[in-house]
Write a protein that binds this DNA or RNA. Sequence first.
DNA 1: CGCTTTTGACCCGCGC
DNA 2: GCGCGGGTCAAAAGCG
Length: 326
Amino acid sequence: MSGEKRELYHHEHHFHDDLSPFFSQRPGPGALQELQGFHLQAASPYISFTDYLSGSSDYGLLTKTFDTSYSSPELFAPRDGGLVKRELVADTNIGPNLNVSAGGGDGSTTPLTPNSSFSSSSTEAAGEEDSGRCKKDRQKVVEEEKQQLKGSEEGGDKSKKVSRPRKKAEKRQRQPRFAFMTKSEVDHLEDGYRWRKYGQKAVKNSPYPRSYYRCTTQKCSVKKRVERSYEDPTIVITTYEGQHTHQSPATIRGSTHILAPPPTVPTSFRQDFLMHQMPQLSARSQQGEANPSMYLPTLPPLQHPQFPDYGLLQDIVPAFIHNKQP
DNA sequence: CGCTTTTGACCCGCGC
DNA sequence: GCGCGGGTCAAAAGCG
């Protein structure tokens, strides 16, 4: 693990583990102000996506973005084809001007069954240094040992959930997180990956439960939590944790081009996301240029060339980085 | 039949 | 030490 990584974790130390306090706040006039402030920051040469994701930017600033929201009409698709909700969560000067199609640049692709509006996003960089990691470590160890126990204890006592032997093991850092607020009437939004639900918990002070999902792809440990804001039930908070070790199935199916239109949502997602995060890019998109990667040369040098794979974002940001001109 | 969802139990860290 | 809350497990049920 690099020193850079360590710093990442250090930064997350300032982050509350649970994002809900941020997301639970209803967007409002004040929020809009914050949002605008955020946009200024996002457009700044000194704060980029990469900065957010690598944890190098000011998380105090980031947390402000949680209060805010702005929409993208084509971000996630409902899993069940549920109701479509495309209204703006908060008006901004960039959302309505977006001319982003799901077509990855040619604008010819049919919009994807949107039912939700991208509202806001934020990173929660890597793990809580100590406690979080230790906990994760142990759980990881437990999982591994369970596997061994299954082999060795066959026919043994299965009545009770084992008191698991513990031993020291390699530390496992908590995965970086990235959260989105989405205005949607369905909880689980299609994002191009396949997920299996492995748990659901009641959320304190909220009538809405939190669901836990894991990526079904083997050896991919990405997880996500989905919950509804208790103050604004139309808002779904999705928190991704970890890095996909594979491409989105949808992307694979669709094309090899990173921004080519998959049959489902991800490209739209990526573009919207990128556009939202980079207003100057979205402005140019109105001139008929729709491929975000085309603008990348205009971006300032990235401060953190080592960009981790952030699940969904892996498909956004690599374009961001790899297309960067020398 | 295989995969996903549901759901109660369990584990763990933390605060009191 | 105890209770609480977050996170995860895994058996059972559901589904296509």
